[in-house]
Structures are given as C-alpha cells and as structure tokens.
C-alpha cells in the first residue's frame, strides 16, 4: 500500500523503500514534523484526526495526479493520526523520478494537495487552550464548498 493512514510512528525509510526503482535517479523525501512555536504561541502536543477511508482515497488520487503530470514518478505517502509530540513525524512523502527536478516538483505538489483535499484535521493543544486548525494562512479556502480540480465522480 503506497498511501496509508497510520496511528503508529512513521519509519521514513519504509516509505522511501516503496518508491525505489532501477530507473530512478532521484528520490525526494518530505518529512512533516510537529513544530513547537507558531507565531510565538507554544504548542504542547497535537491531535490528528482523519476520515480514514476517504483520506486514503484522496492520497491515492494525489498519486494518480502526479503520475499524470510526471509519468515516470513513483509516489508513496503515509500520514499519522492520534497524539503527536513536538518533533514527531506527521507525514512522509517519498517520490522517485529519473531526474531530480521532477522529484522535487512532484513532492511539493503532493504536500500542497494534501493541504487542500485530504480529510485530515489537527487540533492544536496550546499552553492556554485548544483549537481545531482549519484556517491556517497556508490553507486555501473553498467558497464554493469544493476544492479546485476535484471532479465530482
């Protein structure tokens, strides 16, 4: 399974191993980790929650989109849910391609799409309270109720 949601710690090498390919000249790995300070506010820990069945489908859809744009790419993504501590790994994206630029580009494409269409939510537990994060500045909003590029099928 190249696209997974897990409640266990992610071993980065396991995700990389899924995209190893004899014709690959590059593997890029993105590791998303839990940050302590956001605009001066201190996070104690995070809770990630997913609509797991749909999240796996959407991750796999991102994989399909990448193959369409970069036909020789191989992609694997694992996102963790549950309680994560500062510095814990929340997501690992591995992409292999014959040449390095495509591996960088496709990897960045994957994380941007995760933030648009994959039903995963994080709850910040601050020193002085807790909030579901849904309005991060880097998160696009969808006034039409539907993310761009998501067909209705």
């Amino acid at each position: 399974m190249n696209f997974e949601i897990t409640d266990k710690p992610i071993i980065t090498q396991d995700i990389i191993n899924k995209v190893v390919d004899r014709n690959a000249g590059a593997v890029t790995t993105f590791i998303g980790t839990v940050r302590e300070l956001t605009k001066g506010k201190k996070t104690l820990f995070l809770i990630y929650e997913a609509y797991e069945k749909m999240a796996v489908k959407q991750l796999s859809r991102i994989g399909d989109e990448i193959i369409e744009k970069w036909p020789n790419a191989k992609v694997a993504i694992t996102h963790r849910v549950g309680k994560l501590e500062i510095t814990d790994i929340a997501v690992v994206i591995a992409v292999s391609t014959p040449h390095r630029k495509d591996a960088y580009d496709a990897n960045e494409y994957a994380i941007e799409r995760i933030k648009q269409i994959v039903p995963i939510w994080k709850k910040e537990h601050w020193e002085d309270g807790e909030t579901w994060v849904g309005n991060q500045l880097e998160t696009e909003q969808y006034p039409t109720g539907k993310p761009e590029g998501v067909s209705h099928d």
Partner: peptide
C-alpha cells in the same frame, strides 16, 4: 467522494461534512 449542495442523497448514503482540512 466530494459533493455539492445539489448532490442527491438517498437512504443508505454516507454523508460526511469536511471542515477545512489541516493535514501535513
């Protein structure tokens, strides 16, 4: 699958509301 306000629903369907996501 993502849907819209106009999407027809029938008995047995699973409907999920997806607040703005914050994975990654």
């Amino acid at each position: 699958e993502y849907a819209t306000d106009e999407t027809v629903i029938k008995s047995g369907d699973v409907v999920a509301f997806i607040p703005p996501v914050s994975g990654g």
